[in-house]
Every structure is written in structure tokens, then in C-alpha cells.
Design a protein around this nucleic acid. Structure first.
Lengths: 340, 340
DNA sequence: GCCCGGATTGACAGCGCTGTCAATATTTCG
DNA sequence: CGAAATATTGACAGCGCTGTCAATCCGGGC
């Protein structure tokens, strides 16, 4: 039933090596031979054996995506994009959730590397900033791509960056242009680089518009709904209140809306609130969130692509790449022009 | 640097076959030999080569999880549980999102099967009900576990069921006991078996309490937020209004709350609303949802476990299993006792 | 027509492991 | 105590493929 490369070779009247060449798109095969082999393979419904290929060629055709659990949506989209890119190239994606806090991270990775010979690793935040993991991978000479790393100097491995600072800048500027001059900000988790970048963009936008920033207008947070509730409460309980709040992600924006509601403030009439990430939640709450949409799925695809092309020695892929992906501001119902 | 089984054998002064036996926990090795081999392996930091093992043993130590995109949370939790179970047993999980609607499902699967020799497949809803996929797997003799299949007769492969009907029954009964007698229901997507079971449980609970069901109290839906909005609008715009609504999932419950709000009804004072699944959303909206919590992650783990144990020929795993996993009703703020 | 260089093809040796089965050690029991 | 039964170990042949390198083929220049 299951045909091997030998069957195909016999069927096509060539050597197995030639069949191998055709299947791997190697050069030095005449068009005619190539055709003959393809036909034979097709007729026999031949599928190369994964393990044999891996063993002989010392490649696994497997990429691993290592992640803690930043946000289910984020991960799912990343995965979706990455799998798609893998599939197009004959690769597969193995998922490896690890535990940043409680688990034995290093051990997890060692087990992974030791046991499964993946050809490359996609590191999503905040894992991409684990020095131990990165250096373990470097030592094992396993190619990797880091997604939105906090510290881009840590390694020469390529990374994909969403320009969080620019996005936060644009979002804040949008509020300013809508007339808001007193704007609060709720920070994300300090362990994510995005938190810092978003805050930086926010500050820069105020400065660009010549607006003072009262330190009391910045509240700590950790990307959870509850942090949004608390953040809003902190920001709104002073003697004066900001007319808008920029939350560092959608969950916190939702929390901020809830928190404001609990204090009797209506969004967007009494307070504008905007989020970040354009998660499903953003359009599931009332009012729907004005937020920043980033192409997560494309990012995942790009990561896989980069990794594979790099291994395959494709052109145009230098060491040490820093790619940026697009974003856009999505304006919905949670923000409105300032009215005094 | 990288040690092979031969190195370990030499180091321990035994044959490679004996090393192999120790590593695979096979019988017929004396405790002393076993110890010696273990020590040697440890000292050399030996890691068996995945591909070689797969090739020689005709196993891949890989499970695939095939899914369409029912809900990101659902999938993420399923994955989390499954990976964990895999890791404990030396397996890995490959994710394979496929496109139920637009894509070429059969082709996707064939490519998967042909290219990657997975040892087993976990089918999540609604993929588990694709006759073509199931029979393709059967033909290829690849073990599978189906999660919440709609049609349990389709194959003898084991399946894991969340007892949706019982959960809906309990949830409805809870509302009835809280004094509600006029209860509306918003259906899930017809393509998911869960939708039908949840409706069945709802109906059964009414009957058990001797309550009439007005057909107008059932609204169609498809598990999306918008469907909840529309469903609520439909249910509430009649001459009389129900005092509670059971939505078939959390997203729709959130939609129902929004829809009711838009009509001037306050939840839970004017209307009780409950959801299903206990997604993160459930505690992120105001009021937080009364909902049904099901151990999705455990289900994923169980699925992987079942698959692996079955292949390994473990005891206590019969063909044709139908396992149920627990659920519990989580009462939060979106429901309250009926007041006339 | 003959020789040369490059293009094409094939023979063969593993990759690192497991399955088979035969060889050897150990135990059991009459 | 010896033979038979059983437990433990090892030799060896692949698994299906790719890398290496040698063999063969082809076209062009003289």
C-alpha cells in the first residue's frame, strides 16, 4: 500500500537518488526525467517518509513555537499564521507552552531541544526575552526568530517588531486632535517590552503637542481586566479628572470602562477610553473599543517564513534583521471629541 | 558533543540493544544493568534521536490536533492540556488549523497524513464530525479521539463528551428554582452538536418543572456576540417578555446583555442572563456572567492521554469509549432571583 | 572524428535507532 | 546435581531517505 522512494524509482526507471533530487527540487535533473519521476510519484501516491528524511538529511521539518500565555487571541493568531506559512513549505508547527513564572523554564526548553530536533524556534513575548532560553538556543545552534523582543541587543537572531511606540503615539495624537488635553494612561505588565514602548509613545505624543504630563495621570497595570478597573479608579479619583484614558491593551480598556461606570461616569460621554490590540473583546463590549489593530497572524506567518527561508538559504535574508509590521488605529465607540 | 546510543552503550559496557531497552522501559533488564545504563546516559547527557526512533520504530511520537477555529479560548485550553499530557509522555503536539468552510478540508488532511506520520489525531468540534476526515483517518489506521462529536455513531474511535445537555438542564433548573417561569433561549450554531444538546437540556428542564415552552421563546443564534444582541432583541420584543435568558455561550450572553441594555432593560434587575463555557469574557463584562464552567484543559489532556495510552497498549482502555468530563455552574452577577 | 568539460545519473554507505532471533546466564525443580 | 525452563543480553539487519563521489552522457571546439 504505502509506496517508498524505491517503488517510485523502479516505476520511473531511474535511481532512487534521482527521485530524491526531483522531490527536493535539486538542480541537475533534465526536465524529461523530472516529469517522469513526478508522474510515477503521483501514480503511486507516493509520500516521502518524514522520519527517514529527517534522519538522513538531519532536518526535522518542524518548527516550534514557544510561548507563555500572554493572551489567547494573540497566540492563536500567531499560530494560525505560522502554521499556514509552514504548510506552504512542507513544515509543521509544534506548540510548546511553557511556564514563565512557576515552571522550570530552562528545563522545559532543554527537554524540548533534547528530544525534538526542531529546525527552528519562534519565540513569542515574553519568552523571547529570556536570556537563558535565547542562549540555550544559540548554543545549540538552533535558528530562532523573536517576536517583539524587549531587548533587541541580546542576540543577532532576527526579530519582528510591532511598532508599539508609534502606534501609541498615533492613538494619543488622535485623542489630542479630538480636543482632549488631559489624558490618563494605564501601563501594561512591566515584563513585556510592549508596555514600555506604548508608554513611551504616549509620552512622546503629549510632548509633541506641548502638553504637560502630570505623573498622577499614569497608573500601573498588568494587562488584566482587573488592572483596568483599578487603574481607572486611581486615575479618576483625584481632584481633577482626565477626559480620556489610554489603556495599554483591550482587556484593561474594558476594565477601565467598567471601573468608570462603577464611579458613575459614562463612556464615551464623560470619558473616552481606548485600548490596544483589537482583540475580539474590543467589539464585544459596549461601547465597542477604539483600539490599535495589529496583524498578528501575518506576524506569525512572517516569523515562520523567515525561519524557513533562512535555513533553506534563500536570498535576501540577512542576519540580524529587525522587521516591523503594520498597525492601524480603529476608531469605534469608546472615544469621542472632547466637550468641555 | 552529541552522543549517540552507541556512546552510551560503550560507556556502560553493554550492547546498544540493552541501552535501547532501558530507555524504552522494556522488561528483561536487571536492575543493576538498568542503573548502569541510566548513569552512563546521564553522564553523557544522552538524548535519543527523535527521527531515528521514529524511523526504526515506525512511530513518530507526534500527535496532531486538528481544529477549525471554534473559539480561541477553547482551542488554547485544549492545546494547553494536550501539550502537557504529551510532554509527560515524551510526545509532542502538532497543531493543524484547517478551514471547514472555505478550504479544501480533505486535501488539508491528506497532506497532513501523507507528510507527517502522526501517531494519533485529536479532532475538536466541529471537525470531529466530518465524515470524510474520520473515514480518511480510519482508512489510514491512525488512532483518533474525538472531542464532543455530534454523531457518536460515526466511528468506534473513543470520544470525550462534555455533558452539555445535563449542564443546560442544571443551569435552567437553577433559574427556575430562583423563581423564573418565563425563560428564553438563544441557540448556538447548528453545526455544533453542543447547540442541540444545550437546547435539549433547556427544554428538558422546563418540562421537568411542568413549564410550558412558547416556541417564540427560542431564538436562533450562531455563537457570536451579534447573535446574542439579535437574539435578545427578538426575545424581548414580543408582547410579553421573559424574565431570564439562557444563551448557548458566553459571547451570545454578552450580546444579549448589550441588546437588553439597548432596549432599556437592566441585567440582572430586569432580566437575568446566563451563558455557557465560562470564557475569560464572562468575568470581563459587567455584570459578570453566570455561566457553565467546563474543564477544557483537562479535556485536552485526557484526549492526548487516551490516545497515547491506547497506542502504548495500556490497560483499561477499551475500544469505543465515551467519556464524560465534569462541569459546574458558576453563579455570578448576571442572574438573580425573580421578582415580579 | 576525438578529446574535454560540464551536466546528469547512479551506486553505495550510512543517519541512530528498534525488531528479530539466537546466544548466553540464571533459576527452578525432579 | 543435571536438565529444562526462564531470564537476560547481544549480533545483526534493516527502517526510507540523503550525501558523497564516481560513472556516464552530452555538446562543442579543434
Amino acid at each position: 500500500m504505502k509506496s517508498t522512494i524505491t517503488d517510485v524509482a523502479r516505476h520511473a526507471g531511474v535511481s532512487i537518488k534521482t527521485v530524491s533530487r526531483v522531490l527536493n527540487d535539486e538542480p541537475n535533473v533534465t526536465a524529461k526525467t523530472r516529469e517522469k519521476v513526478r508522474a510515477a510519484a503521483k501514480e503511486l501516491q507516493y509520500r516521502p517518509n518524514f522520519s527517514a528524511r529527517s534522519l538522513a538529511g538531519n532536518k526535522s521539518y518542524l518548527l516550534a513555537m514557544v510561548y507563555d500565555n500572554p493572551s489567547v487571541e494573540y497566540i492563536t493568531h500567531l499560530q494560525k499564521g505560522a502554521t499556514q506559512a509552514c504548510r506552504d513549505r512542507g513544515y509543521h508547527l509544534v506548540v510548546e507552552p511553557v511556564d514563565w513564572d512557576t515552571g522550570d523554564l530552562t528545563n522545559d526548553i532543554e527537554v524540548l531541544l533534547g528530544r525534538l530536533p526542531v529546525d527552528g524556534v519562534i519565540l513569542s513575548p515574553p519568552i523571547c526575552d529570556s536570556r537563558r532560553i535565547v542562549s540555550a538556543l544559540e548554543k545549540a545552534r538552533i535558528p530562532m526568530v523573536r517576536i517583539c523582543p524587549r531587548n533587541s541587543e541580546m542576540t543577532t537572531a532576527p526579530s519582528l517588531n510591532l511598532d508599539d511606540a508609534a502606534a501609541a503615539f498615533d492613538m494619543t495624537t488622535y485623542l489630542i486632535e479630538a480636543g482632549h488635553t488631559d489624558i490618563g494612561f494605564i501601563r501594561g505588565a512591566a515584563s513585556h517590552e510592549s508596555s514600555h514602548l506604548r508608554e513611551k509613545g504616549f509620552r512622546r505624543a503629549l510632548k509633541a503637542a506641548d502638553l504637560e504630563l502630570d505623573p498622577a495621570r499614569i497608573a500601573d497595570g498588568d494587562y488584566t481586566f482587573q488592572a483596568g478597573v483599578d487603574g481607572a479608579r486611581a486615575l479618576l479619583s483625584g481632584r481633577t479628572q482626565p477626559s480620556a484614558i489610554v489603556a495599554s491593551n483591550d482587556d484593561m480598556a474594558a476594565g477601565a470602562i467598567a471601573g468608570a461606570g462603577a464611579m458613575g461616569l459614562k463612556v464615551p460621554d464623560d470619558l473616552s477610553v481606548c485600548g490596544f490590540d483589537d482583540t475580539a473583546l474590543a467589539s464585544m463590549i459596549y461601547p465597542p473599543l477604539t483600539t490599535v489593530s495589529q496583524p498578528i497572524s501575518d506576524t506569525g506567518a512572517l516569523a515562520a517564513q523567515l525561519l524557513i527561508d533562512r535555513m533553506t538559504g534563500k536570498e535576501g535574508v540577512r542576519e540580524d534583521e529587525r522587521l516591523s509590521v503594520d498597525y492601524k488605529i480603529v476608531i469605534r465607540g469608546s472615544t469621542r471629541a472632547f466637550k468641555s
